[in-house]
Design a protein around this nucleic acid. Structure first.
Lengths: 353, 353
DNA sequence: TTGTAGGCGTTATCAC
DNA sequence: GTGATAACGCCTACAA
């Protein structure tokens, strides 16, 4: 009983009109007389026809109403980061008017890591793609996608020329925070960084370390613009727990203990504060801590982080706008967002002053 | 210069073979001789053809490789909940072998709330849909989708007969936790619940309150099975901050202060613990606290929650499996998952004993 | 192993 | 306002 599903032609025939007319009834692109529309609707009802097949419509129109978002790592953990969550909010808001939804795709960081049958940028019927960061492996499929004329945008990453980017003034912003600490008299400052590369091991950052993650590298550079010799410890993940673990190590030795810690994210900063509390240190009296992102951290109260506020939601929205422009055949341009320094109650004058 | 994009026919022509042969080269469904395949590949290369258009392939095959996931509320906040994150991990893992990706869709809770141009279950080229909860409004589009023969599964919700469900033994599990407290001698127990309905206001739950969220209702019932008269306070959101706010209120009055709090989620429990600390109460000596979910809570250490562990990732995976079955024309069946009680260090004997 | 033919279901275009 | 026609780009029988 694999009875064929009714098509718009079936409906048209039953209603005694042309397929194109029936089509128009559903799309509403052209005025249709009342009686005609009614006939069609009734016929559709009777045949159990519930509207055009999106697949066929998509082929015909050349648009699927789907925008791919490519993440690194497990989808779930992508959303661990509050900044990415906000960005997704902005993005989904921005693509909704395009009639588009967001398709979550994973960026296989290691070659061969991927499930071979998993959907990819190349096999998915997408109208555009947003890349969060951009691994070398991705570069390959990216070419294919672009060759197809599909708009692509990168957020906080580099996908080569011709791919517009949404960026942040990470270095300059982080420099400001560092300068703030210097103005407060801090000399002995430590840095807690985001991951250095995809392999995500925690540990001290050494001279020879290559940092492949743009954000990490740029923010580190900003801090070092002010404190060239500051030690840096890389956290495994941008989480409170990751920050606590890093904080314990960075703050452990009373002899060399820094009077201020520059954390590369608010979550890390929260963790560092927690580590400080564990060690019996007061914030900001004994240790000052700065964050980065300016996102609400669940459970941070009563502290208000001294941090750099980035327009996370805006970034997502901007990516959507760029896509809209490209879909519209307008010239896209890269965008640089600026962070705003926001003093809180987690930094104060150096005790060593 | 809107020069038409090369199609597989173009490639075939350039390679001097039939379109079907070229098609086979790309799909690999049928063996092709070495020389022929090479000719085709070269021609493709020259024409800048990067493989079949997914839209056309999707129409032809009747599959798009896309599974919709329908959330309530902003996409970003959907991922605020660690349980949902884990579920998404499980789900994405389970649908990957189907060659499918996840399309995020919003469930307009209020009629008319939706952006009219936003993509919907009906307009998106999907192979299947997973609903997280199920609002009445959704019911409507749901019928259309089902009429089209598209498999649908609901997680923690009710979408009517014919829609297989993935459920949790919320009531029984919560009853266990309550019984645990009773065994410890607690008599004065308060409950901190998840949202009562979509409007998300915090406040005491009164007799007359209608609770439209299944999870909330069932867990509350489980707690009341043991403590019929326990007061319940509904948190605005399942977050640490929401729990802290609730905890402050629930624990504020020294006279009537409960010796134990049953929180309906681990995040809420964490918040309640924080509120207790603020008030100078020790956990579990002065107040016992139980959670629900058994997820890692960033920043909870050194506490280990006494909680009900649910197989969140499994739930997602199960939804994927059900979809795979339906796509495969096999009979799907609903699934009931069982929580496991896990004692931690946040509950202890009642001080009032 | 390769080619031919037909159709997947819709919609843009243009004439009536 | 309505209808005929022609793609959209691909894939799968089936025949050669």
């Amino acid at each position: 009983m694999t009875t064929r599903r009714a098509t718009i032609s079936d409906v048209a025939r039953a209603a005694g009109v042309a397929p194109s007319t029936a089509s128009v009834v559903f799309s509403g692109k052209t005025p249709v007389s009342g009686p005609t529309r009614l006939k069609v609707l009734v016929a559709a009802e009777e045949l159990g026809y519930t509207g055009p097949d999106p697949r066929a419509a998509s082929l015909r129109r050349g648009r699927s109403g789907i925008v791919a978002v490519v993440f690194e790592g497990p989808l779930g953990s992508a959303f661990l980061d509050p900044v990415q969550r906000l960005m997704m909010d902005g993005l989904s808001e921005a693509v909704a008017p395009l009639g588009a939804g967001l398709l979550l795709l994973r960026d296989p960081v290691e070659a061969g890591e991927a499930d071979p049958s998993a959907p990819t940028l190349i096999t998915a019927p997408i109208d555009a793609a947003v890349l969060i960061g951009c691994s070398p492996i991705l570069r390959h499929s990216l070419e294919a996608v672009q060759a197809r004329g599909i708009p692509v945008v990168v957020i906080e990453g580099d996908a080569g020329d011709g791919v517009p980017r949404i960026l942040l003034d990470n270095r300059e912003a982080q420099r400001q925070a560092a300068q703030h600490l210097r103005d407060l008299g801090h000399e002995n400052v430590a840095i807690v960084t985001l991951g250095r590369d995809k392999r995500r091991e925690a540990g001290w950052v050494s001279e020879s370390d290559e940092i492949t993650v743009d954000v990490t590298r740029d923010r580190l550079a900003g801090a070092r613009d002010v404190y060239p010799d500051a030690r840096a410890f890389s956290a495994a993940t941008s989480t409170i727990d990751g920050g606590t673990a890093a904080g314990r190590i960075v703050l452990s030795d009373p002899e060399s203990r820094p009077t201020a810690v520059i954390a590369q994210s608010d979550l890390l900063a929260t963790g560092v504060i927690r580590a400080a509390e564990e060690l019996g240190l007061r914030v900001p009296e004994d240790v000052s801590v700065t964050g980065f992102d300016g996102v609400p951290v669940d459970g941070l109260a009563p502290y208000v982080l001294t941090t750099l506020v980035q327009a996370a939601t805006e970034k997502g929205r901007a990516a959507g706008a760029v896509i809209a422009a490209m879909l519209d055949d307008r010239e896209p341009s890269s965008l640089l967002f600026t962070c705003e320094f926001r003093p809180g109650n987690t930094t104060g004058p150096s005790a060593m002053r």
